[in-house]
């Protein structure tokens, strides 16, 4: 699976994170594998509830009760994070691996100045004095593009705009020069113009700091904007993984194709936007065989009976679909050949 000679920075293998609820066990992440190389930006895409956020929390070691990592390995620089103690994990969190979240307002503590919230992480991991931490904090505030940094240092989150708050979150996350930044829907809660600014900022800082980024999103526009490689998740599993250009040009999994088709495009006029029929299956009535089978326009008898494995159709390009069992198939051609059943 790994072609590069260099070992990947993060290598997640067969990760299983289950939630033990009163109604039974919910396998939110069910055998997910992927890797991120040094300096690479990858995205995990999928609908709400597909397990993309839980995957990122698993990497951070922040899966709360009643969730638990039940199996698999999370190798970060060849250390298995699932085997580290809580204390060992804490030295990595915020330092080597850090995270930004969806809601910049609620993600900052309302009772502390933003300056304190940034310098806290610097003092914690770099063991520097208050004075040096403050200097570094002001530098970071400048770096994330907020003018008047030494004044902003003393501001409280409620005094800043949404975009500024997300910049502060980025400053917290990047303050200790992490090797990996996990961004969980970082632009979802922001205005479109602010979204573009935040994405540009992340791109610029990534160049400057050489940080790998794992972007969690459901926004394909964001993906196209800044990612090298895409992982598409459905119902707790990876269904397609590959280079962003190849994936956008010619999606291999019917689910990915459905996602693409349901995104409005500026040069196309349509009466009605395409939508994938049906809903995501709940863990209690997970279909046997392929998990996408009941919603799939290409479904075959085989799909109903047997779950497909993740197949490598091209070098570094993986799809979990029986259609490609005997070599790569173009979905558009396949679609025209066999009219969709409604």
């Amino acid at each position: 699976m790994i072609q590069e000679q260099e070992k990947p920075l993060l290598d997640v293998r067969n990760l299983k994170t289950y939630f033990h609820t009163e109604n039974g066990v919910v396998p939110s992440v069910d055998g997910v594998s992927f890797h991120i190389n040094k300096g690479e930006v990858i995205a995990i895409v999928g609908e709400s509830g597909c397990g993309k956020s839980v995957t990122s929390y698993s990497v951070m070691g922040l899966v709360g009760q009643p969730g638990k990592i039940e199996g698999g390995e999370i190798l970060f620089e060849e250390k298995d994070l699932t085997k580290l103690s809580n204390g060992q994990m804490r030295t990595l969190r915020g330092n080597e691996i850090s995270m930004i979240f969806q809601e910049p307002l609620t993600s900052l503590n309302p009772l502390f100045t933003v300056g304190f919230q940034i310098s806290e992480v610097i003092m914690l991991h770099e063991k520097v004095s208050k004075k040096i931490a403050k200097q570094k904090t002001v530098e970071m505030i400048n770096k994330v593009g907020i003018p008047n940094a030494s004044k902003i240092y003393y501001s409280f989150p409620h005094q800043l705009s949404g975009g500024m708050r997300q910049r502060i979150m980025i400053a917290i996350a990047l303050a200790c020069n992490p090797k990996l930044l996990i961004a969980d829907e970082p632009t979802t809660a922001l205005d479109v113009t602010i979204q573009a600014q935040i994405l540009q900022l992340m791109k610029d800082l990534r160049q400057e700091l050489d940080t790998s980024i794992l972007l969690i999103t459901h926004d394909l526009g964001v993906v196209a904007e800044m990612v090298d490689r895409v992982i598409v998740m459905y119902a707790g599993q990876v269904v397609e993984e590959g280079n962003v250009f190849k994936l956008f040009e010619n999606p291999k999994h019917p689910y990915t194709k459905g996602l693409m088709d349901s995104t409005p495009k500026i040069h196309e006029r349509k009466e009605e936007l395409y939508s994938i029929k049906g809903t995501v299956p709940t863990p209690m009535n997970m279909p046997t065989g392929c998990r996408f089978y009941p919603r799939c326009e290409f479904a075959m008898e085989k799909c109903k009976e047997k779950a497909p494995e993740l197949l490598e159709v091209k070098q570094g390009y993986h799809v979990r679909c029986w259609l490609h069992e005997e070599g790569e198939v173009n979905l558009d051609e396949e679609f025209n050949r066999k009219p969709a059943t409604t």
Binding site: L62, N86, R93, G94, S98, M99, F101, S107, N109, E120
Partner: peptide, 23 residues
């Protein structure tokens, strides 16, 4: 969410609880 942020900084549980949550 801000408690989750404090945890994601690598802060000790006791500091997360008393400084970030209890305040």
């Amino acid at each position: 969410d801000y408690v989750r942020t404090a945890k994601s900084k690598g802060q000790k549980d006791s500091i997360v609880t008393y400084r970030h949550a209890f305040k």
